[in-house]
Design a protein around this nucleic acid. Sequence first.
DNA 1: ATGTCTATTTTTAGTCA
DNA 2: ATGACTAAAAATAGACA
Lengths: 205, 205
Amino acid sequence: MVFIENESARKSTYKKRKRGILKKAKELATLCGVPVGVIIDSPYDSSMEVWPSRVDMDDVVSQWQRLPEMDRTKKMLNQKTYLEQRITKGTEALNKLNKENKELEMKEIMFDCLSGKIAPSSIDRNDLVGCSNVIDQYLRILKRRMEILTKNDGASSSSAHAAATTSADMPIVEMGSSSTAFCDMIRQQQMQNNLNHAVMDLDLD
Amino acid sequence: MVFIENESARKSTYKKRKRGILKKAKELATLCGVPVGVIIDSPYDSSMEVWPSRVDMDDVVSQWQRLPEMDRTKKMLNQKTYLEQRITKGTEALNKLNKENKELEMKEIMFDCLSGKIAPSSIDRNDLVGCSNVIDQYLRILKRRMEILTKNDGASSSSAHAAATTSADMPIVEMGSSSTAFCDMIRQQQMQNNLNHAVMDLDLD
DNA sequence: ATGTCTATTTTTAGTCA
DNA sequence: ATGACTAAAAATAGACA
């Protein structure tokens, strides 16, 4: 763990790892329903990277694009078996993608609905079922988050501040008002999300 | 990537992954000399996790706050835009996989046909078209390889060997020391392909 | 610069004490 | 709940196009 001297190697590493860390942040937020914020004073990118929860760079998909390369050392007699393996793998990946894609489509329908772009009544019957699954999922997360936010609403910002500084897990810096502002920003964002979800719920009931 | 319902599993995951993400943040800061800040509104730890790197969190945050509103909102894409991007990417990946999968299936049919496992006449009409494409492709490769091998017939076996192995278009059989044997094999294969191809042509007409 | 691929290292989920 | 362990999955460095 040392500063990378080589300019281009450093930049390359930066880009890769930045992607990695933002992905991690998103995962932590998703899996555990926890507000996470990341700020990177990006010297290689014209502006500063800010990541509030729920925004993900990209590339969850590219994993599936990477299917194992044809193994050219296999004997031709084995090729059939090999192809079968690949078909199995490919089909699995396909199903996974199909599933994910469908969920995304459901989500988009939901958002179109929210923005009034389409009327809830115009949604296809099948899609409604998918939508409600997605919504149920959102609601579970939402519920959990609401609990947390409500619980923290009563506490003053100073107590949060004090708590933060006494956590001994790792080096902690004194948090000033701007950090608090950042946290507030994250909360706002989540409140906004919550609101959206609530509206969706109403629309579909 | 879904919210973990089970309480204790979630907490366990949270702790592990929090450790992970903070480690990543430190690494990014160290390797690339970049100011990084992470905030986690830690519901399981009774306090908020804040991780500053070489610069104070406040510096990073206030720098972020100084950014023009435009830049800020530009970086934070809203959910809908984000979902649209993901859908586009997902669909692209899907198409790619579909295409690749179809080709693999064609190849498998072909090999089944070659090994006599299925009769050419039993092949679905649509598949026949796909098969013949695949076969044409194989034939082109074979032809090219034949040319190379024939041209090198006079030369030493090692050179023929080299020429053949550097053609990486298609998986090939493990080769013995004699290039003649290899040629024979290819010829046989090609004849068989021709035969099958012809049969299919007949079927299609 | 950008993306892809592969070999290697690292992280993580699950399990058990 | 905590820590240790392991198989499996993911991230990454380095090479290459």
